[in-house]
Design a binder for these strands. Structure first.
Lengths: 215, 215
DNA sequence: ACAAAAGTCGAGGCTTCCCTCATGTTCCGT
DNA sequence: ACGGAACATGAGGGAAGCCTCGACTTTTGT
């Protein structure tokens, strides 16, 4: 909140708050593609009012998720302070997916399904910076295989986000098993050479920018 | 083709064929949710004719994909004949994902996104039966970890189908790297105990039946 | 060659979701 | 307690897809 503009009128501030609460619930249940009209309905407010406060869907994301990603910062900090770099790494990854498994919206957000959400993606990128340190530390500690790159974690997030999406209603812990298999492949002593190189930064950017909701 | 009904009129047979070719192309490019009107347009036929031949989207799937999955049978046979059970296993999995990476529709189909496509899902299930043998053989050979279950392969397919979806345009081979990490975690000598049990058959069924296109 | 059967056509009704804007209401400083 | 600024409202127009149905055209058997 840059607070550049006048303070909101009392009723407007109340409505904005109701909208944010409703959006949090609706996106959590239905994912980031939930109809905005349901958000308005749930907030007890007209669709026009929703658009008054948040001219685009992405503006709503930006108002909701950066704060939510603060939880991730805490998890990252704990990871960097873990005496075992490997445990720190796995703890971070598990914490991340546990968050995703509790909220369809967050799951979509972390998988970068809406490139137009500027602040959200900025927050994601901020997290990624922690991630690099966690990965580097785990490699130096000898637990994590040396050829694992930060971009590989982004790919893992795509993969796990789908597992979570499919299974979260019926078997909310199922992703843990999938992740365990994967993590066993990331240990230094499990490493076999891999011919395919990691995605470049440029490729990542191009992919994320393309990934519209349904395109 | 049970050939229970009369033979089609000549023009009708031609149109049916054009529709199948068009659908193959369109689904291949856009995935199983592609607009049917584009299929009709591409076939040079009206939307009404499309519905004459295929009353539902799923009927189209059933007419296209079971044949396509025959390629998988061949890959499975090769896997079972590989002198190394582990190489057979990895070869099968790579062959499967390579197919998915060439065709968005097949990628969606294998991930079971349309439970109503009866014959398609029957064909998928048939493949799964080969899969069980391949997995069993790889475990007995000592290459594959003992706690890997056939349902885990289905989960892997969800995961990889998403990686493929995201990356196939920009980095068509990127999935290979992700799979390599995963496979390193499936080797018997990389195995660490996993607390979370595999999905049960019942859970799998419930999940697949829920997974509507967008719901 | 002709009529009945078989097949084709596409406009149009339906749904869902998007977003806007003219009108009406509420708040707030004076 | 009043006037203007700020805000809320929801009907409605638009886009995309789905699917149907009655009018029309082609095939085929005789």
């Amino acid at each position: 909140m840059t607070a550049g503009s006048r303070p909101l009128r009392a009723d407007a501030a109340r409505n904005r708050d109701k909208l944010l609460r409703a959006a949090t619930v609706v996106f959590g249940e239905r994912g980031l593609e939930a109809p905005l009209e349901e958000v308005a309905r749930r907030a007890g407010v007209s669709i026009g009012t929703l658009y008054n406060h948040f001219p685009t869907r992405e503006a709503l994301f930006d108002a909701i998720f950066p704060e939510r990603l603060a939880a991730l910062e805490r998890i990252a900090t704990a990871a960097l302070e873990d005496p075992s770099p490997w445990d720190g790494f796995t703890g971070y990854v598990e914490g991340l997916f546990a968050l995703q498994a509790e909220d369809r919206g967050l799951n979509d957000a972390v998988a970068q399904r809406f490139p137009a959400a500027a602040e959200l993606n900025e927050a994601s990128r901020e997290c990624l910076r922690h991630t690099e340190r966690i990965i580097e530390r785990a490699k130096e500690g000898g637990g994590l295989r040396a050829d694992f790159e930060p971009q590989d974690l982004a790919v893992l997030v795509w993969a796990m986000s789908q597992v979570i999406r499919e299974s979260m209603d019926t078997a909310p812990r199922a992703w843990r098993r999938c992740l365990a298999f994967f993590l066993d492949g990331l240990r230094a002593d499990a490493a076999h050479p891999i011919a395919e190189p990691a995605l470049t930064q440029g490729q990542m950017i191009r992919i994320v920018e393309r990934s519209a909701p349904r395109g």
